[in-house]
Design a protein around this nucleic acid. Structure first.
Lengths: 143, 143
DNA sequence: GATAATTAGTTGTTAATGCAATTATAATTA
DNA sequence: TAATTATAATTGCATTAACAACTAATTATC
C-alpha cells in the first residue's frame, strides 16, 4: 500500500482547526486565557444573563464542557452567576468589570489574529471558506 | 451590546470539526476505536515502518500526542514497534494482522461517513471546501 | 394534589491536546 | 577523543471534550 494522504473532511477540519487555534492560543498567553475560554466569555458579554444551556448552544459545546469553562472564568473573577428567579435549577451568567475589559482587549486581538489568517489566502477564498463552513455546520445541526 | 455570532475562522473550524468528528466517533464505537486513533492507524498501514516523528507529521499532531495514541493502539494489539537498527532513540511502527484488518474495515466505514457528510451540501461545495482547507492548512504550515 | 416525565446543572471517567522539561542517543565540533 | 549541540521519545501538568449517570427542580398527566 502506498502512502496516501488522508483527506477526509473530518481530518482536514481537525488538523486545520488545531493549527489556527494554537496560533491564537500563543497570542492569548499574556492575557492568561485560552481561545475556548474567550469564546464563552464573548457570549457572556454579548448577551448578559443567559443560562448555561443557552451559552452552550451558542458556543457549540455540550453542557458539561461549558459548565467547566464557566468554572474557570468564575475562578478567575471574570464572571458572576445568579440563580434564575424563575427557575431555581438554572443560573444566569453575567460578566464582571474585569471580564468585560478582558473581552474587549481580546476581541481586538482576535480581529488582528483573524486578519493574519485571512492574509494567508485571498480575501475571496477566505470569504468562501467561511460561508462553506457556516453552510456545512448548519446542515450538520439540522441532521 | 447585542448578541453577535462569533464567526472567527478558528471558532468556525472548531465547532464544525467537533460535529463531524462526533458523528464519526459514534459510528466507530462498535469497533472500539476513536477517529484520532484510526487516523494514526491509517498512516501506520499506509506506510509501514515510519517512526513516531514521521507519523506525527503526517497526522498533524505533536509528538507526545502521537506517542500516547500509539500506546493505545499498542495496548489494543493493533500495532508493534521495533527499535530502529540505525538509531536506537527511535522505533519503527508496524501494523499487526488485527491492525490491518481493522484499518480496512474502518476505511470503508469512513468512506461511507464522508459520503453522508458530503450529501449535506452540494458536491461542488464539498469539493471547494476541501480545496480551501487544504490551501489554508498548507499556508499555515509555511508560516 | 400525587405521580410521572422532563429539564438544568453537576460529577465521573476516559481521551486528545499543547507545552515544557527530561532522558537517552546521535551528530557535530573543538 | 572530549565536549557540545541536536534530536527521538517520554513524562508531567493543565485544558478541552464526549458521554453516561446522577441530583434537584419544574412541568405534565392522571
Amino acid at each position: 500500500m502506498t502512502l496516501q494522504e488522508l483527506d477526509s473532511i473530518g481530518f482536514l477540519l481537525g488538523s486545520t482547526y488545531r493549527r489556527v487555534s494554537n496560533l491564537f492560543a500563543a497570542k492569548l498567553k499574556e492575557y492568561d486565557i485560552t481561545p475556548e475560554q474567550w469564546g464563552v466569555l464573548y457570549y457572556i458579554c454579548a448577551q448578559e444573563g443567559m443560562n448555561q444551556k443557552e451559552l452552550a448552544a451558542h458556543a457549540y459545546k455540550d453542557q458539561p464542557t461549558t459548565a467547566r469553562i464557566l468554572d474557570v472564568l468564575h475562578r478567575k473573577g471574570l464572571i458572576r452567576k445568579e440563580i434564575d428567579p424563575h427557575d431555581r435549577r438554572a443560573f444566569l451568567v453575567y460578566p464582571n468589570e474585569d471580564g468585560r475589559a478582558l473581552m474587549q482587549k481580546v476581541h481586538a486581538l482576535e480581529a488582528q489574529h483573524n486578519q493574519e489568517i485571512a492574509e494567508l489566502i485571498t480575501p475571496e477564498h477566505m470569504e468562501q471558506l467561511s460561508q462553506l463552513l457556516h453552510e456545512l455546520r448548519s446542515r450538520l445541526e439540522e441532521a
